[in-house]
């Protein structure tokens, strides 16, 4: 509190520190979303920009009102009529939920092992988890193409070992998408899990053991409940972006792998229908707004 209002110069400085990033985010992060909503209510047109009405604020209030009256909900109606869209949403939801669960299942033992490793090893292990996290998403997905494709390394190995006689068709398929998501998002789960598990008070486990509690039971009664903040943070960090994933289903998935990120991309880049892609984005955001807000609450709580 010693820092508050020492001088008028200080409060002006303080105002600037808040205002600069605040304004930046309002102009470049919040305002764009309002524009997305606006365009999702517009009609597609062959023009640049390819939608009408393009609100012209210089034309006066009357003209502006005429333009606003052109807004329609047709794009949203269209999303409900074409099965492609709601099937994409459902399939994304299913893939994101299952992958989040798989990442948790694989990530938890790794984070647990890291937190229980000897102290001098922990920093190195942590760096080894962070390193792939810093490596390009695209590169890591690309690495799997060489492994999973029909004439890829995995099939060659299995054929060589005599496990299979025909190459497996793992890629492109939904299975390959699961592998890609689990692989790419694993560090996002391990890092928050490790952070909570490392802080865990080990005397609690010793006390449980002294009182005759078997290790498995001690894990479920003490370790797991205490690591829940990490579990929750990790699940949000995986689930929310996985829901809108584009690169993984596009490169590893087949034509039958529907994901909404891929559908939005195709709508925008191939069909060039900006209003419909905006409507797709608005609905996706509406689905994700609750998880995103829960994630923010967890982040804020962790920061305090």
């Amino acid at each position: 509190m010693a820092l508050t209002d020492r001088s008028s110069g200080h409060s002006r400085l303080r105002w600037l520190v808040v205002a600069i990033p605040y304004l930046w985010l309002i102009l470049l992060f919040l305002a764009p979303f309002l524009i997305v909503v606006k365009i999702s209510l517009s009609t597609s047109a062959i023009a640049m920009p390819p939608y009408t009405p393009a609100l012209d604020f210089t034309a006066g209030l009357g003209a502006l009102w005429e333009q606003i009256k052109e807004f329609t909900f047709d794009n949203y109606v269209f999303l409900t009529e074409d099965a492609l869209y709601w099937e994409s949403y459902l399939s994304s939801l299913k893939i994101a939920v299952i992958s989040t669960f798989l990442v948790l299942l694989i990530g938890y033992p790794i984070a647990y092992g890291m937190a229980r490793a000897r102290k001098e090893w922990r920093t190195t292990l942590l760096m080894l988890v962070i390193l792939p996290f810093w490596t390009s998403f695209l590169i890591r997905v690309y690495a799997w193409i060489g492994i999973l494709k029909p004439e890829g390394l995995l099939n060659q190995l299995l054929l060589y070992l005599g496990v299979i006689s025909e190459p497996l068709n793992i890629m492109p398929s939904t299975l390959a998408v699961y592998i890609g998501i689990v692989y790419s998002y694993l560090p996002f789960m391990i890092l928050p899990l490790y952070a909570t598990l490392e802080k865990l008070d080990e005397t609690l486990l010793e006390a449980a053991a002294d009182l005759g509690c078997p290790p498995t039971q001690a894990f479920w009664k003490i370790t797991f409940p205490l690591s829940l903040p990490g579990v929750i943070a990790g699940c949000f960090l995986v689930f929310i972006p996985a829901m809108g994933e584009f690169v993984i289903p596009d490169l590893l998935g087949g034509s039958d792998t529907l994901m909404i990120g891929k559908t939005l991309w195709a709508e925008f880049f191939s069909n060039r229908d900006w209003p419909v892609s905006s409507a797709v984005a608005v609905v996706l955001l509406a689905i994700l707004v609750v998880p995103i807000m829960l994630f923010q609450r967890a982040q804020k709580k962790a920061a305090e």
Binding site: P32, G244, L264, L285, Q296
Partner: peptide, 25 residues
Amino acid sequence: FSGMVYAPLVMPEVITGLAMLLLFV
């Protein structure tokens, strides 16, 4: 403000990308 700082961490990139493009246009 804190919402705007944390949201981009998890926001699907297709949404952020589309939103920014529409702003620039």
